[in-house]
Nucleic acid binder design. Sequence first.
DNA 1: TAGATTGTTAATCGATTAACAATC
DNA 2: TAGATTGTTAATCGATTAACAATC
Lengths: 208, 208
Amino acid sequence: MPHGPRIPTPTLERLATYLSVLTNLRSSNVETISSLDLEEHTGVNAAQFRKDLSYFGEFGRPGVGYSVRELHARIKAILKLDRTQPVLLVGAGNLGRALVGYPPLAAGNFEIVAVFDNNPSKIGKELWHLMIKDVAKIVEENRQLEAKIGIIAVPANAAQQVADQLVEADVLTILNFAPVVLRVPPHVKVRNVDFIQELAVLSFYLPD
Amino acid sequence: MPHGPRIPTPTLERLATYLSVLTNLRSSNVETISSLDLEEHTGVNAAQFRKDLSYFGEFGRPGVGYSVRELHARIKAILKLDRTQPVLLVGAGNLGRALVGYPPLAAGNFEIVAVFDNNPSKIGKELWHLMIKDVAKIVEENRQLEAKIGIIAVPANAAQQVADQLVEADVLTILNFAPVVLRVPPHVKVRNVDFIQELAVLSFYLPD
DNA sequence: TAGATTGTTAATCGATTAACAATC
DNA sequence: TAGATTGTTAATCGATTAACAATC
């Protein structure tokens, strides 16, 4: 946990949204933007935006707004995306395949540096440009790679075991696509992406 | 919006989690569970769990707990997953492919009934068992299918247009995988799944 | 009955938003 | 300077959790 004041998770999530919008604005050669302009683009209340930034310092000029270029750079740095973050992927199925081939990943400065699976018929095969490795060797492999982010893209029944292996391999954060609640040590941060949960919430809103 | 009292979104999200845990408990032949047991399984505070249920009526017996079977059935019904929900998928790329072949989808009672793309070289080809159709025909196609849920799995620059087409096709809810903020009419509910945002939040927590 | 656990109210906690003095 | 917009404080809103009477 790098910063002094605890940062609310919703703030971090919005920071990622701001970053993505600022990337677009930069390529449209917009130079300056006010918090109210940004509300237009993101739907996030202008006061909310300024409050979010205030956790990290001062970024704008009263009466003028924010330099798109500077704000972009500073949010990137806050999220540690000013450097390429190496990522381990476990699970060479359809989802794993889609993730390795997902263009925004590289654009966001993430690089999947290794793919693992436990299926002998997959190990040794290629997934895009990467050779699928035995998940049993993940600790060993990550000694060189030193990735701190792991992605779990395996079936639900294997997810906890994979989480344990990732922790053993010194990964500090896990993005979990399996629809299960993972148990990890307190120093490890997990975020879950659960398609079915998302669809279930939408389903609730449907008329009878 | 079917229910009288407005239901907090976090409650709906947790409901989906409870459902998934209850499905597991059912197949383990557990018959009764208390809110405190459930806290063990989900990490959700027992009072929170009871409060969540209280929006929808009374489900348990004081001193005894909840019937797993009954609770499972009732949450399914609340989320309208006691019937199969037809889903339109737009985007026949890697991600679309992974979604059609994602087993928990069917298990959760969702069925992707049609896949659309705008790429002429894909239209007419098969994606698993489904024939890829021209997204320009989506309004027409959905007249028969009457799906109310749409999934956007296209590149960011095409997402807004696809959203417009889905709305035009009378879809009421959209699961959006593209990293953009969609504009839709107020009667349409959108949920975003943004891998890069998730990774960005995790990246923040890494040491320098 | 005694023990356990619910459903619900009230207290706490945290996040969002409005308002405004500071300042470019 | 006058107008615009920031950074921040204070007010509002909503969600979480503790506590407990009701009840199986």
